[in-house]
Design a protein around this nucleic acid. Structure first.
Lengths: 331, 331
DNA sequence: ACACCACACTAGAGCGCTCTAGTAGGATCG
DNA sequence: CGATCCTACTAGAGCGCTCTAGTGTGGTGT
């Protein structure tokens, strides 16, 4: 299982190691004929270039670190797709690192990326506070996608305006008692909460907030008491689709239905937002575009470390589907 | 942004580079006092060990490659969780590589892992044919989880028996016309199909097979004509949960309901199998356990390359939930 | 005929670590 | 009190590449 080295290939092809390197890197400086010979020799030896050695020798920033919070959330799969598309053909390759909803592993995952000497880290869905991120960025540039982090390149969806649009949608339908199912863990979610609060206040209504966490079952559990209350809200705005699913679970468990008994809005427009039969009203953050743009900007940052900080907000889109309607006894 | 090296730390701490290496690797051979000094010096310089250099120098197989087919399928998130738990504390680290449902990227992803000189690859959900995998395994040991690959270590769920159990469940409910929504892409799915076919034949019934692909929307499209037919099947057995969701989509789109109009069975027991309101009857392959066991076996393989090939099938569990019931007009 | 240049190729240093072989010096023992 | 051993440490080779600074060769221009 001892793999062949460039030296072996050079010997087999009767050329110098340096020439093999040139051939494999696809740069100019080798004749077509010789290149063929080299590739043939490599083939014979089942040679695969050693990326480790290559990275060390080139001390280059040819890899892009990607941090994904949670593989269970389709959102990050979308972001990943976008990143992959953007860096395909750039010659860079992706080094993936996965965090966890509990957040404990995030620092570990980030350090792993730094130790792998990636040229830049694209962080999707970090739960770490800004100051920690800034600390990490002493070692490697970090581009935040998910939320705006002052001092770091940020490519994100405008959570404030998205949440405002969703809230207005509910108010326009006639809802007056709306509860926001919150996730206190990150700024990104706090922006959503803020959007909800401002619109409610503008309308002279009381913004109610139910704290919860980042999980479907947790959401179902946390929203339960509110649903059981005789004077329950007519609409729930969940901080993301997964939680909205939990809310729908809780609603179904009580023999109620959305939107006739209660309206539900999610956020993110992940695949979770379209369970069969129902389709969740949600806010599309265009996750794949976000990933693609983030990666494009990351590539720019790599070539120009001195460029001004990127702060790119994109506009989300409210998607009205089947879980929102007028409140019961509205007319 | 130029990072400090071990040399820098050594100079700062007034010791040799080798001693810094010893301290950072956590092996014995350094006094507590000196270790403290070294760590303090490293801290001052914001030193992070260079994993690239470390891997090159140790030429060790200290990393485990993990191939995941598709980030959009929760199944792989479960497998990933299991692997992570198993290798935590082993000192090994995971190198992730993601394929694609189309299968084109799989070879690329595998090569990336080989070029990163991982000690072993745990492959979850490969669409590549066995012979290709065997070719790759010339460069690095591959452990297949998802299906049995003769000649490779395999840790997998017994798809045959799972599919048989699901099919028997439908027959016991009184169904006679059952259609299997197939995915012709891999052996793992073919085993499921085989389980379906054998049970149907044993019962003297005709196994009907509807080819489809690996996607929810595709499944909805492919099952459509069958549902529209006046003499439609009374049950659909989908090759995985995502496709089962597609089937449920198609059913809902026609104003029908499961299981009163038609029964649906999925496979995998991913989070997709519990949309709010409905809960899919499915076969639990215990994906996280699969991942954990796979990683444990991979660690063993790393320490003992000569050990006999591992062939470990685990028994899946039929989970009867809300999408299966007696066929309409059964009595 | 000679300088000149472009092209194909090579030698060798070095990337930041690990690891083997070895040294210094104190404790232990007969 | 010298032999022995252990512990804490160092020197230096080498992992498999990349990349700079060359060398040699054939064609071109004058």
């Amino acid at each position: 299982m001892k793999s062949a080295t460039m030296e072996d290939v050079a010997r087999e092809a009767g050329v110098s190691r340096a020439l093999v390197s040139i051939a494999f890197r696809g740069v100019s400086g080798v004749s077509d004929e010789t290149r063929e010979h080299i590739f043939a020799a490599a083939q014979r030896l089942n040679y695969q270039p050693n990326r480790i050695a290559s990275l060390l020798a080139s001390k280059s920033t040819s890899s892009i670190g990607v941090f994904l919070l949670d593989l269970h959330n389709d959102l990050f799969a979308d972001v990943h797709d976008g990143i992959r598309k953007a860096i395909a053909g750039s010659g860079k390759h992706m080094v993936l690192s996965v965090g966890s909803v509990e957040g404990e592993l995030d620092a570990t995952a980030l350090n792993a990326l730094i130790q792998s000497r990636v040229g830049i880290i694209i962080a999707a869905g970090l739960l770490l506070p800004d100051e920690d991120l800034l600390k990490f960025s002493r070692s490697v540039p970090i581009l935040s996608t998910a939320r705006r982090v002052p001092g770091l390149d940020s490519v994100y969806s405008d959570n404030l305006s998205g949440a405002q649009a969703a809230t207005r949608h509910l108010l326009n339908l006639g809802h007056r008692r709306v509860v926001f199912l919150a996730n206190p863990q990150t700024d990104g979610y706090l922006e959503r909460q803020k959007g909800f609060v401002t619109v409610m206040k503008e309308a002279g209504l009381t913004p109610e907030i139910q704290p919860s966490a980042y999980s479907r079952t947790q959401a179902a559990r946390d929203i339960g008491p509110l649903l059981d209350h005789p004077d329950r809200p007519t609409a729930i705005f969940a901080h993301n689709d997964q939680s909205a699913l939990g809310v729908l679970d809780a609603i179904a468990a009580r023999g109620m239905r959305a939107p006739s008994d209660i309206s539900v809005v999610g956020y993110d427009n992940t695949s979770a937002s379209t369970p069969p039969g129902i389709a969740l009203t949600t806010v599309d953050i265009h996750a794949q575009d976000l990933g693609r743009t983030a990666a494009e900007k990351a590539l720019q940052r790599l070539t120009d470390p001195g460029a001004p900080i990127i702060d790119l907000a994109s506009e989300p889109t409210l998607i009205v589907r089947g879980t929102t309607g007028p409140p019961p006894h509205a007319s």
